[in-house]
Design a protein around this nucleic acid. Structure first.
Lengths: 134, 134
DNA sequence: ATATTACTTAAAGCCGACTTTAAGGCAAGA
DNA sequence: TCTTGCCTTAAAGTCGGCTTTAAGTAATAT
C-alpha cells in the first residue's frame, strides 16, 4: 500500500506520515525496489495509534519518548508501565478540565434559555396589550 | 490590583494578560493616573474565563469571536446561543476523543499487568527448576 | 516518445500562541 | 539622589507541529 492509501485509511496527511517517520514516531516503513514506501497492517496501526494520541493532545515529544521506550529498550518494564500510567493520569486531568469548561458552557446555555423565556414572556405581554388597544 | 497580583490569582502570566488585552480576549483594563493597569473583580473573572476555555483547548480565534459576540453586538441572541451550543458540542467531541485515548492506555496497562504476571510465573518456574537441580 | 501521476528528499516556510527583549517611566525606601 | 522594583510599549523571537516547495525519479497511459 502506498502513502496515499495509507493517508486515506488513517486520515493522516502523507506529509505528516513522512514527518512522523523522520521523527521516529512510527517505525521506518518498508520500501520497494524503487525506494517507495510500502505500508503494511502494522505500519497502519502505528500511524493510527499516533493519530489517536495526538488527537487526545499528547505532545510529539512525549509520544516519541513513549515509542522509544516500547520499541528500542529491553528490560524497562517498570519504566514502560510507569509511562503508561502517568500518561493516562495526565490525560484524565486534561479531560476533567474539558469537562469543567463544558459545564461552564452548559450553565451559560441554561441561563440563556431562562433569559430567552423571560423575553418571550415580555413579548406575549406586549402583544396582549396591543390586542387590548385594538 | 496590579498585573502581578492578577497574574498570581489567575495563574495566567502577566505577558499573556497583556497579550489577551491587546487581542481583545479580555476587555480593556482600567488604568490609574500613571497608565498602570488596575484590575478589578470583573477583569479577574474575564481572565479566568479565558484561561478555562484555553485550557479546554478553545482556540484564540474562537474565543475572540465568542467575546466579540457577547461584548459588542446587540440583538444577536440567536447567534450567541448558537455559538455556545456549537462550542459545547465541539468540546464534548474532543472530550470523547480523549476518553478514547484514555481507554486505549487503560487497556494497555491491563494487558501489561497480565503480561508481567506471566513473566513472574515463568520466573517462579525457573527458580523451582533451579532448586530441583541443586 | 512524452505526458501524467505518483512517489522521493531536504530545506524552507507558516501559523498559533505566546514570551522575551529593549528602552524607558514612576514611586517608595535607604 | 539613587537604587529597587514595579510598571509600560512595540517589536522581535521562540517553539511545536506540521506543510509547502523545489528538484528529481519511476511507472504507466496515450
Amino acid at each position: 500500500m502506498n502513502i496515499k492509501e495509507a493517508s486515506q485509511i488513517t486520515g493522516v496527511p502523507a506529509s505528516t506520515i513522512r514527518y512522523y517517520e523522520k521523527e521516529h514516531i512510527i517505525p521506518a516503513v518498508d520500501r520497494n525496489n524503487s525506494g517507495v514506501r510500502d505500508f503494511d497492517d502494522h505500519a497502519i496501526r502505528r500511524i493510527s495509534f499516533a493519530k489517536k494520541m495526538r488527537d487526545a493532545g499528547m505532545e510529539i515529544s512525549t509520544l516519541k519518548q513513549y515509542i522509544n521506550l516500547f520499541d528500542n529498550v529491553e528490560n524497562s518494564e517498570d519504566e514502560q508501565l510507569a509511562l503508561l500510567v502517568e500518561q493516562k493520569r495526565l490525560m484524565e486531568a486534561k479531560r476533567d478540565k474539558m469537562q469543567d469548561a463544558i459545564d461552564h458552557l452548559a450553565h451559560k446555555i441554561e441561563n440563556f434559555d431562562t433569559h430567552m423565556l423571560k423575553i418571550e414572556d415580555e413579548l406575549r405581554t406586549m402583544k396582549a396589550n396591543k390586542k387590548e388597544r385594538l
